[in-house]
Design a protein around this nucleic acid. Structure first.
Lengths: 129, 129
DNA sequence: TCATTCCTACGTATGATGTAGTAGCATTTA
DNA sequence: TAAATGCTACTACATCATACGTAGGAATGA
């Protein structure tokens, strides 16, 4: 599933807010990103069509939606796509982070210590933040 | 500068081939990605307009192009964009790589050892792998 | 030189995306 | 209950991206 930038932005809000209406999402956007109600609505519909949101129930006549995909999985997809442009090498990607000073060796060390060995196994099946 | 996926794909070929013609790029694409000559041409033109390629000279009546931007810089831009969707946290990004098993602790260790401390300074002005 | 081949310039078609408007039903409220 | 408000569903439309076709000029070779 491929989401556009604007769609991803809305989905982000849903992850942050949890189940909510179009209106609530709109209101949650910072001033600078404010768009028309129907613009958000369209994006929400497209996200629903793509299976990224699902409608859960109505409150009054407002339809509530909630995320239907996991943020972690979504991000993994993004990373996967990006990796294609790094010749499939995650090490090149991390190298880039290091070279541009985006991340430091200290950061890496911290990550390693936070994740002693069995890290990979943890990744499935628990609620997200 | 923002490149589409297809454009980025063509630019990749240029980085690999160096100075070359539309025809050469087309021929260099693997079977599964083969498209029409004019499709590549369109992409090359757009890349030129965006300043990612520049025309260098003619051989016969074929125009030769070469990359006008650095692969490393380009990738950095991509990573920067991606990071926005990780709440700007490179550590979250690397966490994701670890959690999905895309990269291992061993990889990280290797990277760290390959780059003792002065890593950031090395990043400019040498050819890539 | 004349046919063939190749390249360029330009144009077309289609689908995705960003942004928003309108009509009308549902809900709330005077 | 009738007006006001809010939400949904549908539509509109401009722009971008992908992909390709065609016309015609340049180069090549017989």
């Amino acid at each position: 599933m491929r989401l556009s930038k604007a769609e991803a932005r809305i989905l982000e809000q849903y992850w942050q807010l949890g189940t909510s209406s179009v209106r609530e999402v709109l209101d949650s956007l910072p001033e600078e990103e404010r768009v028309a109600y129907t613009t958000v609505q369209t994006l929400v519909y497209r996200l629903e069509q793509k299976g990224a949101l699902r409608r859960v129930r109505k409150i009054g006549n407002a339809q509530l939606f909630e995320p239907a995909i996991d943020q972690r999985e979504f991000r993994s997809g993004l990373v996967r796509d990006l990796l294609e442009l790094f010749g499939g090498s995650p090490r090149l990607l991390v190298s880039n982070l290091l070279e541009t000073g985006t991340i430091t060796l200290k950061d890496l060390k911290a990550l390693q210590e936070a994740r002693p060995a069995n890290a990979a196994k943890r990744s499935r099946g628990r609620g997200h933040a």
